[in-house]
Design a binder for these strands. Sequence first.
DNA 1: TTCTAGCACTCTATTGGGTTGAGTGCTACC
DNA 2: GGTAGCACTCAACCCAATAGAGTGCTAGAA
Lengths: 349, 349
Amino acid sequence: MIILTQRDQSVLEAVITDYIETGEPVGSRTISKRSALNVSPATIRNVMADLEELGLLHQPHTSAGRIPTPKGLRIYIDSIMQSKQLERQERDLIREELRRKPRDVKDLLQRTSRFLSQYCRQAGVVLWPKLTVTRFKHIEFIRSGQQQVMVILISRSGLIHQTNIDWTEEISQRELDKYSSYVNELLQDLPLSSVKERIREEMRSEKALFDKLAARALEMARQAIHDSSFEDSEIYIEGQSNLLDNPEFADVARMRRLLHTFEDKSRIIRLLDVTLKASAGIQIILGTEDEFQGLQEMSLISSPYGRGDRPLGVLGVIGPMRMDYSRIIPVVEFTARFISQILELADEN
Amino acid sequence: MIILTQRDQSVLEAVITDYIETGEPVGSRTISKRSALNVSPATIRNVMADLEELGLLHQPHTSAGRIPTPKGLRIYIDSIMQSKQLERQERDLIREELRRKPRDVKDLLQRTSRFLSQYCRQAGVVLWPKLTVTRFKHIEFIRSGQQQVMVILISRSGLIHQTNIDWTEEISQRELDKYSSYVNELLQDLPLSSVKERIREEMRSEKALFDKLAARALEMARQAIHDSSFEDSEIYIEGQSNLLDNPEFADVARMRRLLHTFEDKSRIIRLLDVTLKASAGIQIILGTEDEFQGLQEMSLISSPYGRGDRPLGVLGVIGPMRMDYSRIIPVVEFTARFISQILELADEN
DNA sequence: TTCTAGCACTCTATTGGGTTGAGTGCTACC
DNA sequence: GGTAGCACTCAACCCAATAGAGTGCTAGAA
């Protein structure tokens, strides 16, 4: 455990805020002038040397200023920084922006991602709710070929899942309608995570053993839900071009790596899954702490949305490590809370 | 109309193929050695000077080689270049790649876009079918709140459209089911473009005037289809990072402009709409010919897919003007034909 | 003991001159 | 009409010199 004196903290904070602002290594003179502690540059230099020894600052080369290390940022974020409170009018603006005609979930989440990116001038990211965390609302079997059935599954929060299944025998739409209403009845309002189990249970029950219709309907539902894509996650990443505005991405090679990472979304999904599972409010991952490669030198501020005990997905902001944390953190926090409200509302109906 | 001698054409072709390969301005010496016509560099220089006067070649500065202008590329593509035929095994590979478990339309198109990007090492783009060009298959009204109804509309090709509508009075699911089957009956197999008309017609008919259920069902369907997003287009752009591998994007500023363009998809949609409306097979747009800004110095090779007289959408490849047209054009052409087959098949069932 | 002033030192970034080499345009000649 | 030769142009590269920001260290003040 690292213990810092009051002055150490002040210097660390001064270096970080200045670095966040300018992106350049910060020298002792600058801090001496800017910071509230009235000490000379030489004194600052001593403190900085100490902080460097602790691994909180780093010097690109001997005759340059200091920049914070991820470790230094972590301490700053966790115990020094004070998040700015959002102004009332800022909150109103966010509400306004997101509430506008909440047509369907997809639209809402996409807009959220876009909003986060624009408002924070970084990339915004939203992880879709997995179907399994929502509740069953409706299933529909539709004939789509002689031996093909299209299955539409809808959750209470308005998510849609579509899949096609092959059926071994010719089947009429009328028959399918009967299946639909039987299954709808059976699964009404169940959490989708326990639907599989419920179906299996029912298949073993007396009814299914003797009622041919029920047996077939159940078999069809089973196949539909067995579909591999059922548990897939999806994410929206918007505003990648904002990142290019940061001088740290003047380097093409770095930019290329980043774009590659964004295109192979599975990595980011895994990363967000961590936040989802932890589900303990806002989470900040700093580049080098990321055991999954690809986001080096980047930073991810994320928060789960949904009810605390039953998070639906994750939303957040991806940017360079040099971000205005004190502003972005409350924005992400508030957005998550607000989206949660909207979705809970839908899911309760 | 520009008329070129055989030799002019050969020189133009040689410059372009070399430029496509290397990305560097091409000098007279190189051409003299590479091309089949056995003439000296000096002669080539004379020809090149002529071609430059015609606006087909351009010299970045006095002591550099020549690069083709868009005008020069156009002539090359339209009348000089010979598209390579795809090898049998290449076609098999494409088929293989795309046919794998064609689960739903979205998945298919997204995979197509990704495939195009990987195979051509550029960005791949696919414009979704608009709902209005497909045929009606199924509509479903689902109660999603006391006075809220979720409407799911499905086309024969498997597209799904979801919307929410407010209803002025409390309504039960049982009632909604009746609406669904009535409307399904009515609209079965109609082209979605004429559905609006059909509904209006029916509303004026005797039946609707006296049958309250029918009247309400029709009103509900009308509202659902009236929804503004009904005619929206959507596109997938994949493989943007491939573009970064091209040395012409070493320039960050240019890259930034390009990413911005990709994020504001409406421009590209408009651009693709041109191909869709023209619907005359493969279409090539070269950067500066693009009256919509944003794709300067880029080039778009696109082709509509779907039946010739009833195109569904557009797919293609976006890359720098320096692309291997003779290879990519047949790939886009073949992919479009193949996707058309798959989708037609689905739409016919 | 803690802080500060001063100074020599280090290292990057920038500037400008010199050189290289690819490629051209022109002219004289085949 | 085609070619060889030659002087010329221009970007790219290398190199050395310089400027400037910032440090570490030491000696002395509080």
